[in-house]
Design a protein around this nucleic acid. Structure first.
Length: 434
RNA sequence: GCCGCCGUAGCUCAGUUCGGUAGAGCAACGGGCUGUUAACUCGUGGGUCGAAGGUUCGAGUCCUUCCGGCGGCGCCA
């Protein structure tokens, strides 16, 4: 059967609200956000990806019956005349000539009374909310900014594997997967593979999922999260810290500039983001310990900080800051020791208010023998890491990099209660549906 | 892994102290009213009180076990 389609162009609600179409005829399509019926007029509030606009259907309209039938979240197309009207939220409304129901919705389960738990049960529907719409737009923007940032600095984007044979940190926190007839793991970081790639590309980065089988029960952990990772040949600790603070500052400033509507929806103070700029304060682990003990916290030298400690420090700075030069025993096997004090390693954490650790990075051991010693000290098998050691066999260089959690970044930027709100379908110990 | 909390209508909750026929608001449905702003208003339907077992004349309520979920710490990004 041959059908000749009538070509109709549709306008985004955002453009209508901008006033580009005042007094003009427009076609708009979307979903019914609210509906209020009266004897003489039906108000159909319509949403699309870009915004929300009130539409009116009058008693004498041919679409009157259709407007009566329409339910919350039904998909519709409307055509009508745009009128500037102070009574309409947003200042403009569409006086409908024709309303067509595309998909009539059953009674929508999400109403004004919700709990966090219920929203997670119906996550696939909650994603339609104005809040999630705004968060997803900003997430998209942030990912775009990360790519722009690294590419501008001549980093090459690489695609690391998700299936891996050896652990990054040797932990018991890997998800095992059946891989044909053997057992492999899902990656928890691309770092080791990125380190190998720098011998070819010098500066590499990726945005990829990482998986952690930790039974964490906190607002800042996911079993599956997105990881911004970068690795750079010949980089010093100074290079790394600058790279990290420049990245975060760039993202915050650009989001403040370009996502005003979304930030308003989320009640985020644009100024707070616009003011994020380098340099970030830097303190050593020893200085942090000193600060904490002055504040009355008991921290044992050699232990990494707990969440309470991080929050206390962050409260004092009120913005992102670095802690570096950690005791060797508190960090991973690949961390490079300071020559002048081999008890300390060149590892640096970026800590932000409310969320704590946002990124961890540092210089990696570039000497083959030292690396092997450390591997053994961690009880790891040399042969599992042979490919990684090769990096040190054939033209080793000082180098370093960092990993940053996309969800933690967003949760901090947008002042959200938990990282779960920053990803469309969060996976935690107990949540894997939808 | 350790500690704490929750589960009653589609949703949000009250009812648990002190055991005695299962309630409200919102949503849905039917009416009324209104250029409405998550409208207002009258009415109607809606329940295996997470599950199983126990105590009791009688259990949403007390006891035991299990299931599901939430949060804190630890681990980490």
């Amino acid at each position: 059967m041959k059908v000749k389609d009538v070509v109709i162009s549709f306008t985004s609600i955002r453009r209508v609200l901008n006033g580009d179409f005042d007094g003009k005829q427009v076609n708009v399509r979307g979903w019914v956000y609210r509906k209020r019926t009266g004897k003489k007029v039906v108000f159909v509030v319509l949403r699309d990806a870009t915004g929300i606009i009130q539409c009116t259907v009058k008693r004498d309209s041919l679409s009157w019956d259709e407007a009566q039938k329409v339910s919350i979240e039904s998909s519709v197309t409307v055509s009508g005349t745009v009128r500037s009207d102070g009574r309409a939220p947003g200042g403009f409304e569409i006086s409908i000539n024709e309303l067509k129901i595309v998909g009539l919705a059953e009674a929508f389960p999400i109403t004004k009374d919700q709990s966090e738990e219920f929203r997670r049960d119906v996550r696939h529907l909650w994603l339609r909310s104005q809040k999630m719409n705004a968060i997803m737009k900003i997430r998209s923007k942030v990912l775009k900014l990360v790519h722009e940032f690294f590419r501008k600095k001549t980093f090459i984007e690489v695609s690391p594997p998700m299936f891996i044979s050896s652990a990054v940190e040797g932990g018991a926190t890997l998800f095992g997967v059946k891989y044909f007839d053997r057992d492999l793991y899902l990656t928890q970081s691309a770092q080791l593979h990125l380190e190998v790639l720098i011998a070819s590309l010098e500066k590499v980065y990726c945005i990829a999922p990482s998986f952690r089988a930790e039974k964490s029960r906190t607002i800042r952990h996911l079993a599956e999260y997105w990881h911004i990772e970068a690795e750079q040949a010949f980089a010093t600790m100074e290079d790394l810290m600058r790279l990290e603070e420049d990245l975060v500052s760039h993202i915050c400033q650009e989001v403040a500039k370009d996502c005003k509507n979304e930030l308003e929806t989320l009640n985020v103070d644009t100024k707070r983001l616009a003011e994020v700029q380098p340099p970030f304060p830097r303190i050593t682990y020893d200085q942090a310990i000193e600060k904490l003990s002055k504040m009355g916290y008991k921290v044992k030298w050699g232990m990494d900080f707990g969440f309470e400690d991080e929050k206390a420090l962050a409260k004092e700075f009120g913005k992102p800051f670095f802690v570096y030069a950690y005791p060797k025993e508190s960090k991973a096997f690949y961390c490079k020791m300071y020559e002048e004090n081999p008890k300390l390693v060149m590892s640096v954490d970026m800590i932000v208010p409310n969320i704590g650790e946002l990124a961890t990075g540092g210089s990696r051991i570039d000497d083959k023998e030292k690396l092997i010693v450390r591997l053994k000290e961690f009880g790891l098998k040399e042969e599992d890491y042979d490919w990684y050691i090769d990096q040190r066999r054939y033209g080793t260089t000082p180098h370093g990099g960092f990993g940053m959690g996309v969800e933690r970044l967003l949760a901090w930027m947008l002042n959200l209660e938990t990282v779960m709100e920053t990803i469309p379908f969060p996976r935690t110990t107990r949540r894997y549906y939808p």
